[in-house]
Amino acid sequence: MEAYESIKKLFQLYVGKRFSKEGKALFGKWLRAEQDQEIKEHLLRQHWETVTGEISADTWEDWNRLRSQLGTSFHRKKQIQLMWLKYAAVVTLFLVSVGGTYWITEQHTLRQSVEMAELFVPYGETREIQLPDSSRVWVNAGSTMLYPKDFRKMDSRTIYLTGEASFQVYKNKKKPFIVKTSGVDVQALGTVFTVKSYAGEDYTTTTLEEGSVKVSLKDGTTQSYVLKPSEQLVYSHRDHSVQRNRVDLSLYKMTREGYLIFEDVPFWQLVSTLEKKYGVTFQYNVTRYGNDLYHVKFAPDETIEDVMEILHQLMGIQYAIKENNIIVK
């Protein structure tokens, strides 16, 4: 189940988004890898049901060139000819939708032997990993990250993220370090920063601790912002607005150590964070708690039972815990 959800998130991250030529090639490498092929084929078939493009002579021509380029046919099971033709079309339309003609024309990049690594962190967990260039990443709960297993043949160190992760980047001026999300691209040169961009949330947040980063918007404009330490940029997916804030780094660094720190946040945001941290589901009256703001801190070793009791003592919240469900009365 975790593998399916992870791959599904990656598909959602790519479909309909704008990516660099290198990123399209990397996604193609990952897509044609044998690992989890049945799940990938299932999601490709699902994507077929949503595409609006029609099959034409150009589709078949693109497919034949694409199949030769990728070195794979994507069909291991013998099926009737009609179903196979439809499946060939969905592969072609899907790759064209995320990669354009680059799949067909830029052969040299696809020939590079680049393997993709995929990391999915389920709710209730966090992970710390070291990237191939010795950069370190702290990946938060409910996050998915895709990156090359070897940066040596790449022009840049490009990471694809949906969720939240903190990066401590190893300096290499010849190969910029770039974190790509659905809303912004964040480029760093030897720095420490955090990117938060969960699927389904309205904001992408970039917070800088050390060095500098350039945040480029992906809303059809060429806007970019250079952040200084202690600065935070919040990008709205709804109205494409940008807000720059100052943050207290002494508190912010504590979050990497496992602390949960909330400063004047609405109840839904507090609940969303707790759900990811502890792998639970909240049930509550949105109208009743819609206007309340919360200011509270929880230690790394505190359980969800401890957290709820603190909220009860400090704010009078009445609740009941039934397995992984928390009912707020």
Rank of each mutant, 00 (worst) to 15 (best):
S20Q: 07
Y14R: 06
A117R: 02
K218Y: 00
N64G: 00
Y87L: 02
Q81Y: 05
K17I: 03
G190S: 13
T109L: 15
L251E: 08
I261E: 05
R157S: 04
T204C: 08
D62H: 13
W138R: 13
M145Q: 04
K8F: 06
R67E: 10
S230A: 14
I80F: 11
Q12A: 11
W138Y: 15
A117H: 01
Q37E: 14
D264A: 07
Q130P: 00
E49Q: 14
L274N: 05
Y203W: 05
E305R: 13
Y203F: 07
K29S: 03
E201N: 11
D292E: 07
K21G: 14
D150S: 02
S20P: 07
G71E: 06
L260G: 05
R244I: 15
V307F: 09
Y319E: 14
E275V: 10
Q168S: 09
Q269F: 08
E106Y: 14
D264Q: 12
L270T: 06
Y235F: 15
Y4P: 01
H295V: 09
Y259S: 00
Q37C: 03
S212K: 15
E61C: 02
K196S: 14
L251T: 00
E41W: 03
L66R: 00
E231L: 07
K173N: 13
F193G: 12
Y170L: 11
R18N: 14
K78N: 13
V137F: 02
T205Q: 11
D62F: 11
T221F: 00
Y4F: 13
V215F: 00
N325C: 12
D155K: 15
E49P: 01
G124A: 04
V296G: 04
L85W: 07
P132N: 02
Y147D: 01
